[in-house]
């Protein structure tokens, strides 16, 4: 479903998320969410999450897969 402007449900959803702090409080995490340029950071961040920073995990996956 599209995020329609005149649809009550998406508005209610945003209000709910806003009350939980996802609007203001979460914006404080912006600096930690990668570098400022979100678009440029996206592929790099993906590589960081999936790449060899988690090499130990890879080893462990093989250990676990053995049984």
């Amino acid at each position: 479903m599209r995020d329609g402007k005149d649809d009550a449900a998406p508005r209610a959803r945003r209000r709910f998320l806003k009350l939980a702090g996802l609007g203001t409080a979460a914006s404080g995490a912006a600096l930690l969410a990668g570098s400022g340029a979100a678009k440029a950071a996206a592929p790099a961040a993906t590589e960081a999450a999936k790449g060899y920073r988690v090499t130990d995990h890879v080893r462990r996956v093989y250990d676990l897969a053995r049984f």
Partner: peptide, 22 residues
């Protein structure tokens, strides 16, 4: 993107960063 949705993305990225490595 609405601020609340941007906030969700920030938190997901923060969690991804902390769970990928110390």
């Amino acid at each position: 993107i609405a601020p609340e949705d941007q906030g969700r993305a920030y938190l997901y990225r923060l969690l991804a960063r902390l769970l990928a490595a110390a």
